[in-house]
Write a protein that binds this DNA or RNA. Structure first.
Lengths: 207, 207
DNA sequence: GTCTATAGGGGGATAGAC
DNA sequence: GTCTATCCCCCTATAGAC
């Protein structure tokens, strides 16, 4: 490749990128391969040439999306240099940034897992990874030192993730049903980067 | 109708009940009218005889589900006899009870609104109803008295609803990805009836 | 590799008998 | 009202030319 050469995206890559957008937006069932082909500016036959079937293509997208999602979080969870509080702040900030750039991810995952709950666990032992993380260790330490009041860590995890993710799940409904617009939503999410760690601290000290 | 007569469900009603279950579980796009007919123990043609089309049937289900959902909440929001704190407790308790009996509702609403964001607003001016509620009035009073620290009420609403609803949205993923089972989930949700009001109070006093 | 044309099947809807 | 049989469209997938 000469240095002058324009960076061209291969047809295969173009299909994948487009497919990702469409699948994220509409979900597997509601997506037609024609939508993808059209939007990618290629012929429908090419999609099958490269990926054999809609299902295969979808599985690739799904796996890659989950991998990068899980991977990005694991780095934070297992950082040996940071305290529990710092990890919470980092999680809130990086999660929110990620979801601001791809707000459809939570709804996408929720609907696709509903329709196909199988095989996820074996591929992504997420629960296990959390339980084995430095993050979880630090949480347990805090609990033993009496800094955390509520016994069941499930509450803590639900609260941490829910406070971050739920607004994105509720966003379409919220924007439809109220006067909240895109700009205001983003402002509020920026504020939450700061607020969520404070809230969680206050919640953890409550019984 | 003689008093002795068994209470028989009309075919129309039977279709509607079944359709509701299937739609809630799989969503509009992934549901086949054949699924509904089969599970209702009737013939496919009957479905169209009574409801003309899949879309019409779906719209009826959707409207009724939303109506009862919204209605049940409005009663709590506009109760003149209760304080803000009591309303929060009641909302948590009755919402959680409702969702324990029909846990698919949140995911259902989220996915269907994504696929069809139109017309919801006009039919259910939910945002407006909240802003005009006694509940919201009391929240504003609390804010003016300095009991609530954070300026934007959107945070408060997102937190209130998110703490209640998010676990149900995350439930399929949670149960797939961890060792949490149905029983444990229900126990945790019962605890949250008590905890959410406490947490919210603590959060509201945090800046 | 990329296209056109078409096969093949599934699913929503209807005609018409009972 | 309820059924069987069937239509027909839409969508996925493939065959085959270029």
């Amino acid at each position: 490749m000469s240095p002058k050469e324009k960076i061209e995206i291969s047809t295969e890559e173009k299909i994948k990128i487009t497919a990702r957008q469409v699948f994220l937006k509409k979900g597997f069932a509601a997506t037609r391969t024609r939508d993808i082909a059209e939007e990618a500016g290629i012929n429908l036959a090419l999609l099958n040439y490269y990926f054999r079937s809609k299902a295969k293509l979808f599985e690739i997208i799904m796996t890659e999306t989950l991998s990068s999602f899980v991977g990005s979080i694991q780095k934070v969870l297992n950082n040996e240099e940071t305290t529990l509080e710092e990890k919470i702040s980092q999680l809130a900030a990086s999660y929110i940034d990620l979801l601001k750039s791809e707000p459809e991810i939570p709804t996408f995952l929720v609907t696709e897992i509903r329709n196909n709950p199988k095989e996820l666990k074996s591929k992504f032992p997420l629960g296990q990874k959390i339980l084995q993380s430095r993050f979880y260790e630090q949480y347990q330490e805090a609990y033993q030192q009496g800094k955390v009041k509520e016994a069941h860590p499930l509450h803590f995890m639900l609260n941490l993730i829910g406070l971050i993710v739920f607004p994105f799940v509720a966003k379409p409904l919220l924007m439809e049903v109220s006067e909240v617009g895109q700009e205001q939503f983003e402002t509020v999410m920026e504020e939450r980067k700061r607020l969520i760690p404070l809230w969680l601290k206050a919640m953890m000290e409550t019984e």
